[in-house]
Amino acid sequence: FPLVETGVRLWPTNPVFRPYSLLTINRDPGAALALAGGITMLAGVVFALFSFYYKRARGDRPEIT
């Protein structure tokens, strides 16, 4: 506003914003390994959970004295 009062007017010669589009597609080579590790960990957790309940149903628990 002070520049306008003194008579200086700034007019942009080009648009301030220009439309553009960027598309970047990257392939992660370690994604398959991470997926395999996640599936393995999930299978281990499920196995441990079912093993615990299977032992509990059979009564195969050590006696703590």
Rank of each mutant, 00 (worst) to 15 (best):
F52R: 04
P2W: 01
L42N: 06
T65C: 06
L3S: 04
A43I: 12
G59R: 04
F47S: 05
G59H: 04
T24G: 03
N14H: 06
L23M: 10
R9L: 15
D60H: 11
D28W: 06
P62H: 07
G37W: 09
M41P: 02
L22H: 03
A36I: 14
F47L: 15
Y54E: 09
A48M: 10
T65Q: 10
T65R: 15
E5H: 05
N14E: 15
G30P: 01
L23F: 06
T40Q: 05
T6N: 09
M41V: 02
I39N: 04
Y54S: 03
L42Q: 03
E63N: 03
R27K: 05
I64L: 15
G37N: 10
N14Q: 13
S21W: 04
T65N: 11
V46G: 08
R56N: 04
K55P: 00
I64T: 06
D60W: 10
F52K: 04
T65H: 08
T24L: 15
R18K: 06
Y54W: 10
G44S: 14
A57Y: 12
L35R: 02
V16Q: 07
R27G: 02
R18I: 07
G59N: 07
R56C: 03
T6D: 13
R58P: 00
Y53T: 07
R18V: 07
D28V: 08
V45I: 15
S21T: 12
N26R: 12
P2L: 02
L35C: 03
A43F: 13
M41A: 13
G30R: 14
N26I: 09
T13R: 11
R18W: 02
R56I: 00
K55N: 05
W11M: 08
V45D: 05
V8Y: 12
R18F: 03
L35K: 02
T65L: 11
P29T: 08
F1C: 06
F47Q: 14
R61P: 00
V46S: 09
S21A: 14
E63S: 00
R18H: 13
T13L: 14
G37K: 15
T6F: 11
P62C: 00
V46R: 03
F47R: 12
Y54A: 10
P2H: 02
R27L: 14
A31E: 14
R9G: 00
T13D: 08
G30M: 12
G30Q: 12
R9V: 15
Y20L: 05
L49F: 14
F17Y: 13
V16M: 11
G30V: 14
A36V: 11
W11L: 15
P29G: 03
Y20E: 11
Y53C: 04
A48Q: 08
L33V: 07
L23S: 12
S21R: 09
N14I: 09
P2D: 00
V45L: 14
D60V: 01
D28C: 04
L42G: 13
T40F: 15
L3C: 08
P15H: 10
P15C: 02
Y54V: 00
A48D: 09
G44I: 10
L33T: 01
G30W: 12
T24P: 00
G37L: 15
F1E: 11
P29I: 04
V46P: 01
P12E: 05
K55R: 13
T40A: 15
A34I: 11
A34F: 11
